[in-house]
Design a protein around this nucleic acid. Structure first.
Length: 225
DNA sequence: GGTAAGATCAGC
DNA sequence: CTGATCTTACCA
């Protein structure tokens, strides 16, 4: 284990038992997606289902906004993205490439179409369940290291579109367990889009092996000829 | 009604 | 690098 992740786990352990996890309230989501995105880092997403409970710590996010050519909300509310224009603190889930699901956290005031795409999680609980749902995953770092993967691992689907993250006993809960966002998260351009590609609206936990593209650990590695 | 592109992933 | 797989949004 490298020094960075070791330090991170120690500080996390030091807080264990001292800090009760709290459900993030609606006002947490009243800001812009560019503000919310880095604040979501290290928050805990919990999903309850008949099969059991599964959760993960957010390690990579991307911001999307109504005035952003890359966003689904750019051309106004459509049947697909209308929840982006609703109240914050709910999930926007859409079908990607006809195959996968991708989950976003809606934010900003009602009427403004903004959301933060959850791109990667560090699996925390229900690992067995997550492995069952993702048979192709060879390692723990394959479980939630991508927007489609994390939805599969946590059992998120279109049925969760518009569901609240703020109800303590709800199926979906976003928790602050005392682990703050990094003071200096890694930041870069977004992945997989063809418009507004220059906006540096992607943030991740520097050094995390659970991010979607290995950016956190490959930054020191040069191109191999 | 037709169509092109897509906020991805896994396997070769 | 490519195929899978299908919904969405836009155009006629």
């Amino acid at each position: 284990m490298d020094a960075l992740s070791s330090k991170r786990q120690q500080s996390r352990a030091a807080r264990a038992g001292k800090t009760a996890a709290t459900v993030l309230r609606a006002d947490f989501y009243s800001c812009s997606s560019v503000e919310l995105a880095p604040r979501l880092l290290n928050k805990l997403l919990v999903v309850r289902s008949e099969e059991g409970l599964a959760s993960g710590r957010i390690v990579e996010v991307e911001a999307y906004d109504q005035f952003d050519p890359a966003a689904h909300s750019f051309r106004g509310p459509t049947p697909r993205c209308e929840v982006m224009f609703g109240v914050g603190g709910v999930l926007y889930v859409y079908r990607s490439y006809g195959i996968h699901w991708c989950a976003n956290v809606v934010c900003g005031p009602p009427g403004h179409g903004a959301a933060v795409l959850l791109r990667a999680l560090e699996p925390v609980s229900g690992i067995r369940l997550q492995r069952d749902r993702r048979a192709s995953a060879q390692r723990a770092t394959d479980l939630c290291s991508g927007p489609g993967k994390l939805c599969q691992a946590l059992g998120l689907s279109g049925a969760d579109n518009g569901a609240a993250l703020t109800r303590p006993r709800g199926r979906l809960v976003l928790l602050d367990d005392g682990d703050p966002p990094p003071r200096l998260p890694a930041q870069g351009v977004r992945v997989g889009i063809s418009k507004a590609t220059e906006r540096p609206w992607r943030w991740w936990i520097d050094g995390s092996p659970h991010v979607s593209r290995g950016d956190g650990i490959r930054t020191a590695r040069a191109s191999k000829s």
